[in-house]
């Protein structure tokens, strides 16, 4: 908000003709005592920028460069192929396009199925847990607990729970005379085998963020609403939700990005079955680059995935902007 207030003022000042030359002649007269050189800001940002350049920007640029080559870092020849890796990905019938787009499809299905639940459910859990009552911390801890486990642990755990022939769930269903659905090997069940463990696993993390957001909503707003006769449900929609808006957008964005990076669950629980239907984009990229050592085409795949995620993030960001403009 502060930014929007000052930005127009400074830009209009910059546009005024003649100002630059006069300030160049007698800088001391223009500068107010508190004004600092614009370089100071960059100086303070420098440590971050250096790390960002080294570990984010440089690898991204290097990845783009690799994606323009037929690249195996151990082979002497790394011929420059221009956009061929990208063209191959968009050419139906090439060795890479089929597997890649089917993996993108799997990732998209998983994201669409999981994100709404992983956003709404933690919110519904966070609202009661934000109140003070005995045992509150216990419930918070219990719900957060799965998040501390690694993906390998939850993967193997759920694989044994869900296995239709030797699993725990199958044996329980068997006792009441029911057959277990083929969770690990057939659609649409496999999506359940990916989404359900993910909800159980990450519920607590989003809940904690919502809890923090809930604490930021002023108590007085609720009191005022109550005085106006708002029911708890009306309070939720008219006080809580608007108050959580920035937090909500943040949670949706990070959940989207995390879901789009699906790897461990489908690698361990369904192993991509049936056929290769639940292989995620990251699995495909890893196989292409690290098992088949085609880093060029693997980098091209990553670039396309990154662009998709960037687009999603920009859309989400535009929601925050809209609000600020009002």
């Amino acid at each position: 908000m502060a930014g929007t207030a000052t930005a127009p003022a400074s830009s209009s000042r910059g546009r005024r003709p003649g100002r630059d030359s006069s300030s160049g002649v007698v800088p001391g007269t223009v500068k107010s005592p508190t004004a600092v050189s614009p370089l100071t800001a960059y100086l303070f940002l420098a440590p971050y920028l250096v790390l960002f350049a080294m570990f984010v920007l440089a690898p991204i640029l290097y990845g783009l460069w690799i994606s323009l080559h037929d690249w195996d870092f151990l082979l002497p020849g790394k011929p420059f192929v221009g956009l061929q890796n990208y063209i191959d990905l968009f050419t139906p019938g090439s060795t890479v396009s089929g597997p890649f787009w089917s993996s993108m499809r799997a990732t998209a299905i998983f994201t669409v199925l999981s994100v709404p639940i992983i956003v709404v459910l933690p919110l519904l859990v966070a609202v009661p847990l934000a109140r003070k009552f005995p045992g509150r911390n216990f419930f918070r801890a219990v719900i957060f607990a799965p998040y501390v486990l690694g993906v390998a642990v939850i993967g193997i755990l759920w694989r044994y729970l869900l296995d239709p022939n030797v699993g725990v769930l199958a044996s329980m269903l068997d006792r009441v005379g029911l057959d277990s659905p083929p969770w690990l090997t057939d659609t649409p069940w496999v999506w359940g085998a990916l989404v359900i463990p993910t909800i159980w696993w990450t519920l607590g993390y989003n809940m904690v963020i919502f809890l923090a957001g809930l604490q930021d909503i002023s108590r007085e707003l609720y009191e005022a609403a109550e005085m106006d006769g708002a029911s708890p449900i009306q309070q939720f929609f008219n006080v809580t939700l608007p108050g959580l808006r920035p937090v909500l957008i943040f949670v949706v964005t990070i959940t989207l990005l995390a879901s789009a990076n699906l790897f461990g669950q489908s690698y361990i629980i369904t192993q991509g079955q049936p056929g290769r239907e639940t292989r995620s984009a990251i699995m495909q990229i890893a196989e292409e680059g690290l098992a088949r050592f085609n880093m060029g085409s693997s980098a091209a795949m990553s670039t396309i995935l990154t662009l998709c995620l960037l687009l999603i993030s920009l859309v989400m960001l535009s929601f925050t902007r809209e609000r600020d403009a009002k």
Partner: peptide
């Protein structure tokens, strides 16, 4: 930095 990462990895090749 940017050049270094590239050069180091290709040097590995």
């Amino acid at each position: 930095a940017a050049l270094g990462v590239g050069a180091a990895v290709s040097a590995c090749g």
